[in-house]
Simulated scan of single mutants.
Amino acid sequence: MTLPAATRIDPTASTQEWDEARNLMVDDQLRPSEISNPRILKAMRLFAREACVPPAHQALAYADVSLPLGEGRVLLQPLVTARLLQAANPLPGQHALVIGAGTGYSAALLASLGLTVTALESDTLLCQQGQQVCAATPSIHWICGPMPLGDESRAPYDLIYFDGAVPTLPAFCHTQLAAGGRVVGLIHKAGDLSELFVATPAPDGTNGFILTRLSEARCPLLPEFVPPRSFAL
């Protein structure tokens, strides 16, 4: 993965310098792009995103780019995360399921916003890293296991949050979402291009969803949701 040129910060920077980089991210990337929820802005000013970034890319922790986590996974660029959180409208006391929790950035932000979070991650190494990042946050429960079935044991969820792209809404969203809940994430379009969405259950009581498409973003499919290749004879 080739990373574009971006403002870097020395990984050995002082706490004050990391704080300044975090504030610059909010003021230069998020606020000018219509991220206006003060709770989300505050959370992203306070949580140390650099803790979720592999050492090789830690200098770009607050750059306007997605960062590789290995095995085709990425830590989404800060603006995409902020847009997903704002679309999700997370409220204190609610329960969220994060699919593809990676190194724990989105799960930690949701927990800091007052939610109880179930973080589901299939990659063992990423799951271990995420657990370490979130070790001091008891409101996050980590599960290392397959993503396509969600987590029925703690359902229903007020929010199902995909921290990556999927080709379509998985079936478990119908059965594990609480009444009045919502699903947010990215729907894959082509190549590495995806589209942010928020989905709410259809009011007619069927298993359908009303899908509202938001802005486009570059994000790969979560590996476990890549459709199998079909071969023509």
Results as ranks from 00 to 15, higher is better:
G100F: 11
L84C: 09
G70A: 04
R39L: 10
M44W: 07
V98G: 00
L24W: 09
M25C: 15
T81G: 10
R83N: 00
G100M: 14
L67F: 12
I35M: 00
L75G: 02
R83I: 00
L97W: 12
V26A: 09
A48G: 08
G93V: 10
V98R: 03
V74P: 00
G70C: 09
A96N: 02
Q16L: 11
A61R: 08
I35S: 05
L91G: 01
V80F: 02
R45F: 03
L60G: 09
A51K: 15
M25I: 14
P54Y: 02
H95Q: 13
A101S: 10
A82T: 01
A63I: 11
A56E: 15
L79F: 05
E50R: 11
L91T: 12
P55Y: 05
M44A: 04
A21N: 07
G70W: 10
A21H: 01
W18L: 10
D28M: 06
D64P: 10
A48L: 12
L76D: 03
L69K: 06
A59G: 10
C52I: 03
S33H: 07
R22N: 05
R39H: 11
V26Y: 06
L76T: 08
A101E: 08
A61L: 13
T81V: 15
P68S: 05
Q86H: 00
E20T: 12
Q94D: 00
